[in-house]
Design a protein around this nucleic acid. Structure first.
Lengths: 214, 214, 214, 214
DNA sequence: GATGAATGAGCCTTCATTCAT
DNA sequence: GATGAATGAAGGCTCATTCAT
């Protein structure tokens, strides 16, 4: 990554890589099994270290989980905020579609989506994680979409609507699709649910449903 | 309950009531804490009995969970199937709205919704439960909606669409709303998310989005 | 059984039969599963009564077990004592063989043998049962054989020997055969072990081994 | 053990010793109480560790039991097989007596004998253990004795006999004596049963009983 | 920094025994 | 006498966390 400027001896670079290896292993397992059902021993083994080592880098299980979220979703949101700020000239419906698509490709279509499912499922049992996730992910993400809707209404590109409520409605299908990808749905009944087809169906519904009525 | 004709001794009447008391307590706790995190001792105590008593009525934890689902969601679906069959004359969009509203009021708006959240979350860790839920709930529920969509398209009341895929899209927001009600969302950011307003917003989107294009 | 003199109404005779039905069921299950692993609920069900009824006739599990032993082994020993006392003229080796054969046919070859196995196995965990069985079965049975050996030596029908010790040696193979019948041996390795052939082989060994040396 | 060359830290040496300490404690308790009645917590405490530690070395209770058997009886059988193979020149009756004596001194007279008692008693409730014990102990041990009998008959050192059946007869008294040592017998009636005297009585019976008839 | 042995609280499940009816 | 619902103590097993090396 930073090859040219890396002057550290190899073992130290190894040390620097440890957290990333652990985060990758943790993401995989949290997504697969959920928070409570993931055993730290499995995380450590998957990262090629011992259980004790994990505690050198993360205070406890919840701390590890937060680090995984910061390393993935939170970064993606930051990027999207920048992108939106830079797209003042883009038509609102196009910007909205781009945001939803980006959300899907960067998060929903990847294993990161499993973290969202996990939070919905287990946040009730882990209030500290819930608060963290709410602040760092949900509020920031919602603000982003609400802003675009408000802009569109103001510019006459969308019909009149309640931006906050419509944000929730827009979030819903993507959230659900994300969860389907990590529940038994896709394997059983919805085996053939082509996520891209779903997204197109959904975006079509949005376009027709938000358009100003002539 | 059956006061006049009841000739059973009191403790036997008690026995008849026990399963319902246990199911009620189990529903409450499963919804609150999830499947794995619910302790049977808590269920028993909430029903006012001891741990051992629970095993007089249910073979084990999974059996108890299935009984809860059968006692709630499965019954509701059966009722909806009957209602739909009896409404041959109703306009398709009205029938569709009624189904979605019923789903919301009978399931989504009640604590039963928590079971759906729970299944999404933990089905991966309990394959037997996943299969049960898929067969008894998901497949039956999906078939019901898909049938209505097909009917509407055939009658020209809906625009051309892929019924199975649109079923998934329609399910999504209600599922999500159900989960919001049982996740940290409503307590934090979406505290004020009026579910009825959400449903109206959603149904409005559906009406405009499914209408045949003139 | 006592038909002519039975003046009791039928339900009362039924009541008198209860203990026998319970003893039969208990024998079956104790022999099959051992003392600790036998569930009283199974005993009751096998006898066609409820769990509570069992406690009307027997104070507890150990009391039930004692009753089973009294109803079977202890009775057989009493009969053998009478038979031996009545056979003063019989040659000692013949009497000995008869006793060993009777022991085998009346106890060893029947499911009652399972009780002996059971006692060897679990007496350590149930001292009260151990004491009972020792007094009522082992001591009485040993005294019987030792007496015959002493008689045979005194009459010159057996070579000189330690009667008590030889009693133990004689008991051993029959005990073992009884246990084989109720362990995994017969089903696996010794599947074809014909008990009668074993007994003949053993009695032959005894005859040649006890005979006075000329 | 490996004092001079031991460069391991102390806790690691501890680790190496743990399984043996646990096996010793388990042997003691299994023999005392039987398989089902032995609590793993007691085993752990007797070995000076906590319940969880036991599971670092053994997968479960049955696995622990198998390890105990392998560590004791199975090893002894292996040694006896070697000894027999190395004693081609020894008279058959002497070899047979040596085998039976070795069996007694290495197994029967030690607490290991309790394992045999235990298997007879509880194998019916634990089929997996039964199969293991049958393959690793009973079949191998029986083959050893049968081979010696066949050799003796072939060489004219024993009278004609059925080797397999006689193997069972020969096993019986030692098995029984082993069980007596671990049942209530020795403590009560047979308190004074000198096992060595029993063995001599038995071996005398065997010598006279197997000798070729002139 | 790294290890992994050790801990112990926690949970599902079983079953002898009791007792209200 | 008979019932069977109810109890609650007990035991196998798991896993986040600690700490001596």
């Amino acid at each position: 990554m930073q090859a040219p400027t890396d002057t550290k001896p190899r073992w130290e670079r190894r040390k620097d890589a440890r957290p990333q290896e652990l985060l990758a292993a943790a993401l995989e397992l949290f997504v697969d099994r959920g928070f409570a059902a993931t055993r730290l021993e499995d995380v450590a083994r998957a990262a090629g270290v011992s259980k004790g080592t994990l505690y050198l880098y993360f205070e406890n299980k919840q701390d590890l989980f937060k680090a995984v979220v910061r390393d993935t979703i939170v970064q993606t949101i930051g990027q999207a905020e920048s992108d939106a700020a830079a797209a003042q000239d883009m038509p609102s419906d196009e910007l909205l579609r781009q945001m939803l698509r980006t959300w899907w490709t960067q998060v929903g279509a990847t294993k990161v989506a499993g973290l969202a499912k996990l939070m919905m499922a287990e946040s009730g049992n882990f209030p500290e994680l819930a608060q963290f996730y709410n602040e760092e992910v949900i509020e920031r993400g919602s603000r982003l979409l609400t802003g675009i809707l408000e802009r569109g209404v103001a510019r006459g590109e969308f019909r009149p609507l309640d931006p906050v409520m419509m944000t929730n409605v827009l979030i819903a299908p993507v959230l659900t699709l994300m969860m389907w990808k990590h529940s038994f749905f896709p394997c059983e009944t919805h085996e053939g649910v082509d996520a891209d087809a779903f997204m197109e169906t959904f975006l079509g519904l949005v376009q027709q449903g938000l358009a100003p009525q002539k």
